[in-house]
Design a protein around this nucleic acid. Sequence first.
DNA 1: CCTTGACCTTCCAGTGAGTGGAACCTTTAT
DNA 2: ATAAAGGTTCCACTCACTGGAAGGTCAAGG
Lengths: 129, 129
Amino acid sequence: MNIKEAAKLSGLPAKTIRYYEDIGLVKPLRDNNGYRAFRETDTHKLTFLGRARALGFTIEDCRNLLALWEDRSRASADVRAIAQDHLNEIESKIADLQDMQRTLSELVESCAGDDRPDCPILQKLGQEA
Amino acid sequence: MNIKEAAKLSGLPAKTIRYYEDIGLVKPLRDNNGYRAFRETDTHKLTFLGRARALGFTIEDCRNLLALWEDRSRASADVRAIAQDHLNEIESKIADLQDMQRTLSELVESCAGDDRPDCPILQKLGQEA
DNA sequence: CCTTGACCTTCCAGTGAGTGGAACCTTTAT
DNA sequence: ATAAAGGTTCCACTCACTGGAAGGTCAAGG
């Protein structure tokens, strides 16, 4: 199977798949013409990667998750730890964004948004000390 | 005032200030020895930039906000539009992260996290089609 | 006068996770 | 024979810094 079909099956852009090979996440075989030859295990891995990335796992997390996935003697605790750490990160990011959202929506609401120059948004950003 | 004091006053790392000069956000004068000489207007701008960045505005947004800040004949509508767009982006990011959070916390909860290999997290990531 | 240490300078490289594009090769269909 | 559609590699760019090397400047102490 060539890269385009692997892309279709996995839902990843061909460019991304090449990149994943570059960084050693997948290792498709090669045909005599130099084309990548994807086996089912490869597309299966790619799908796995796509799902993990969609959940926001970093590439390094993905690398580790993939290793655990392939390790039949893994401990589920190791998987859970990675996921829990990532969940914590996500929750902290959500909290940060919500702080921004609160402040910003207050500012936006307080601004008339007309053709006059008076603007509480700029005022707040430029506040002395 | 040298860069270190500007950094202290604005709360930004010296490196970041040099970078902001590089990309044209601030234009401190220079002493004869080549050292940057920050005026109050410079540190004021830097503080502004720090606050805007803390609210998640991109550098390009900051550039535009700074220009509006300095334009006494601005229309507050222009400021508001930038802030509203950014707020929309933030809200969309929050929604994305909350989707991940929901999925992930379900997965984490469903995983025993012991020394056995069975793991619903990996199972879900590796699900066929 | 010399040295030490704390500043300051510029410039280069790297981050994460791809994406865009150029230049070129191979296969398939007409 | 050629054109289209696929494949390949490689280089550069993104964003907003950050780290570090190599070197210049300045104030204080001996």
